[in-house]
Each structure stands twice: as C-alpha cells, then as structure tokens.
C-alpha cells in the first residue's frame, strides 16, 4: 500500500461527506472561456483602478497571531471532565457545546493550570458554526487582536456586559457567508471566538450566550 493508494481510494467515500466538506471558495472559483475572459477584461479595464481599492479593502485577510501550541490533546464531552477547576468555564458552558478539545503541555500535569495551553470548541450551535479557542496562561490580548490591514471599517470594539470585545468580519470568498472574528480577555484567558452564519446577528447571539453568564 502506498500514499497514492490512500489518496486514490479516498475518491469513493460516502458522497454526503464529500459534499459537506466542499470548500466555500469553490463557489467563487471562476471558469470562463478565453473569449469571455478577454471580453470581460476589455469591458472592465476602466473600472480596475476603482475596484482594486475596493477589493483590497474587502478581501485583505485578517492578520491574527497564529500561535497554536500542539501539546497533548484530551477530548472531552463535558466541561466537568476538565482535570482542574477553571473559573471562566461558565462562559464556555453558555454555548452548550457537546465536545471540547483540551490541550496541555506535552508531558505536563493536566491538573495544573500552569501547564494548560488551550480549550477548543468547534461545532454547529444554533443556526451557525462556532470555533472558540480559549488561550490560557494570561496571554497579552494585544498579541491576539485582529488587524485588518487596509481598513479600520471592518473592525469595531464594543463593550458587552463590561467586557471589551473586538469584532471583525471577513468573507473567505465572494459568495461565501462572513466569518466574524471576536477577541476578548476575561480573567486571564484570551477568547478567540469565530462564528459563521447567514444571519449577521448570530455573532451577537453567541456573545450574549457567553458574556451574559457574567451577570
């Protein structure tokens, strides 16, 4: 058996999984005939300068700190299974997730919060998709803030239940829904929450579920 055999035989797995995993960028891929491509180019050339600025603003990727420490992973079905008490757990519980990934230092003691790296939730909740990274060890929030390089319009800072939350949005591709990126810090833990939904109010709903627990 070779890696090519695995790559080849993956072709015929259950079709529903293939369709479910279809990248959203696929819907934005373009297949044009040469004639159409050149025709479009000629027709649009005078608009390029204006559009270029607009597209740059709209599609510049969010720049975020990307430090995901591997460590050892423990899969949990309930936050009560966390090896030690964690004060901010109520925020995560507010999401009502059914599975969690808990990462801690390789060879470290999972009952000692000093060895904790992160807690992750990634699942469909309500009418959308949530990816939440909780970074332990009192990281500097400034390192994690979203930086939309060419525009400040796409980011905003709101105070929700006394917590300052930075919110940004980004579209992976032209026809895809928006990902909302939010960053906030509470009790020494940085929360990197991302939501995907057709409903623009979904991010507020998720933030309310989490931060509403503080009251």
């Amino acid at each position: 058996m070779t890696n090519q055999d695995i790559f080849r035989e993956l072709t015929n797995i259950t079709p529903a999984y293939i369709l479910d995993a279809a990248p959203r960028a696929e819907s934005a891929s373009r297949r044009r005939s040469r004639l159409l491509r050149w025709g479009s180019l000629a027709a649009c050339i005078c608009l390029v300068a204006v559009l270029a600025i607009h597209i740059k603003v709209a599609f510049t990727p969010a720049q975020m700190t990307d430090v995901f420490r591997e460590g050892t992973c423990m899969e949990l079905t309930d936050l009560a299974q966390l090896p030690a008490r964690y004060d901010g757990a109520a925020l995560v519980e507010g999401l009502g997730a059914k599975s969690y990934e808990f990462y801690y230092k390789e060879g470290g003691d999972p009952t000692d919060p000093a060895d904790w790296y992160s807690l992750l939730v990634s699942e469909g909740i309500g009418n959308g998709q949530v990816v939440l990274h909780c970074m332990f060890g009192d990281p500097d929030l400034e390192d994690w803030k979203v930086d939309m390089v060419f525009t400040k319009k796409a980011t905003e800072t709101r105070v929700i239940h006394g917590v300052e939350v930075q919110i940004a949005r980004q579209q992976p591709s032209l026809r895809a829904e928006y990902w909302y990126y939010t960053i906030f810090k509470y009790d020494g833990v940085v929360y990197d929450l991302r939501t995907l939904s057709d409903d623009a109010g979904y991010v507020d709903e998720v933030l309310e579920r989490m931060l509403g627990e503080l009251e």
Partner: peptide, 19 residues
C-alpha cells in the same frame, strides 16, 4: 479529497493555519 492548501482550509473553517 479536495487537495486544498492549508491556508485555504483554515480560512474556510475559521481556524488558524497552525491549528
């Protein structure tokens, strides 16, 4: 299956590249 670059998978799934 789709042979997407890691950065594209990350953008699509709302994850960081290193995650």
């Amino acid at each position: 299956w789709y042979a997407c670059p890691v950065a594209e998978v990350a953008a699509d799934c709302g994850m960081t590249v290193s995650h």
